[in-house]
């Protein structure tokens, strides 16, 4: 059933990572992104890799799930690794066959690139998309951007728009399904014919869907007014986000990883290099 789809890739759970405050997770994700771009030496990549592995293991997300999430980037990953290996012309020559020449630096760059992408994707998705519900993320963003409201940025409105959009995705999906069946029953063919023909068939779904979305919007607005909504000022929240001591520990840990990465940058992993040199 279409209504059973999960929003985003969130996996409900109660792991230590799930319990971190969404605001801290956002900050941690930013720190991890910075760290992956700052890292340049073998040791710093090793550190990042280990940190990400720990995050991943603590989140209790299955490897299968993570792999599924990686699917879209597999191609880019293979492509860049390939280019790094075959087109880097520095370092010592390792292998030569006709025009193919593989140098040590090519291998090293490729491994670094690979780890950089894996760490980037894994750390952000484990921290955000897999363990934080969209609504918690929206709330977290609203809280973090609150200071901007003072200079006239409508932070509350954006957050409300986001959460209502999230709320209505399943409703509108269900409606799409209904309209499509209704149109099918009247002979609309969505699956065969030229692209133009199929696009035109979909128009018969989008127009009623848009009309019903507008109707929903008007009714919802009435219902909201009836329930005393008049903008963000003076509103309180049922669930007040409170930072716990452990949240600060997590932020500290992420900052430590960044610091460690920077400190490790001057040191290369000569072990690996040494193993390859004849």
């Amino acid at each position: 059933m279409i209504r059973d789809i999960t929003l985003g890739q969130y996996f409900p759970g109660n792991s230590p990572i799930h319990r971190i405050d969404p605001r801290m997770k956002l900050l941690m994700a930013i720190i991890m992104i910075v760290a992956t771009f700052v890292a340049s030496s073998g040791t710093s990549f090793a550190l990042l890799f280990i940190a990400t592995l720990i995050l991943f293991l603590l989140s209790r997300i299955s490897v299968k799930t993570l792999m599924k999430g990686m699917k879209p980037i597999v191609f880019i990953l293979i492509f860049t690794t390939f280019f790094q290996i075959f087109f880097t012309r520095t370092g010592d020559l390792l292998f030569e066959w006709r025009f193919i020449k593989i140098y040590t630096n090519g291998i090293i760059f490729a491994i670094k690139m690979f780890i950089r992408v894996i760490v980037l994707i894994t750390s952000t998705s484990v921290l955000l998309s897999y363990t934080t519900s969209p609504i918690a993320l929206t709330d977290g963003l609203e809280q973090m951007l609150k200071p901007l409201a003072k200079i006239g940025v409508p932070v509350h409105d954006f957050a409300l728009i986001m959460s209502i959009a999230l709320r209505f995705i399943p409703t509108l999906l269900e409606e799409t399904e209904k309209i499509m069946s209704a149109q099918k029953a009247r002979g609309t063919d969505f699956s065969t014919g030229s692209l133009m023909k199929r696009a035109r068939a979909l128009l018969a779904v989008f127009v009623p869907l848009l009309a019903s979305a507008i109707r929903h919007a008007i009714d919802l607005a009435d219902a909201m007014i009836c329930r005393g909504y008049r903008g963000g000022s003076g509103r309180t929240k049922l669930n007040v986000m409170k930072l716990k001591f452990t949240d600060f520990l997590w932020l500290f840990a992420a900052a430590a990883v960044l610091a460690g990465t920077i400190l490790c940058n001057p040191f290369t992993l000569d072990v690996i290099k040494g193993a390859f040199i004849k």
Partner: peptide, 15 residues
């Protein structure tokens, strides 16, 4: 309005 039952019931009192 909201994505969980409790948040929805709380919408009015929050306002």
């Amino acid at each position: 309005v909201a994505t969980t039952v409790e948040e929805d019931v709380a919408f009015g009192p929050e306002n």
